[in-house]
């Protein structure tokens, strides 16, 4: 156990070290996809889906057509409900 007076150079050094370590840590663990350098939300844009995950891959055009088909199926549901009178 050495007795050193508080303050002085050591403390300064320690502080600097702590500061450096903190900065390093910040750099190593990015807080968002963009900070990690892979696109995504920026300051004024909320961009959620950027990476291609290993899922069920689908083509965008197919999705657009399916979406329209879905809406028309709801229209069809209206028509069925009207024709059959009181189905539900």
């Amino acid at each position: 156990m050495s007795v050193t007076p508080p303050g002085g150079q050591r403390t300064l050094q320690k502080r600097r070290q702590a500061q450096n370590a903190k900065e390093k840590q910040l750099k190593q663990t990015p807080a968002s996809t963009r900070q990690a350098g892979h696109g995504g939300s920026s300051s004024s844009i909320l961009k959620i889906y950027t990476d291609e995950a290993n899922g069920l891959r689908v083509d965008p055009l197919v999705v657009l057509f399916l979406a329209v088909a879905f809406i028309f199926s709801v229209v069809a549901l209206h028509v069925i409900a009207k024709v059959t009178g009181k189905l539900f």
Partner: peptide, 9 residues
Amino acid sequence: LPILPEIEI
């Protein structure tokens, strides 16, 4: 993951 649809890039 395997069942969630993903848009191709």
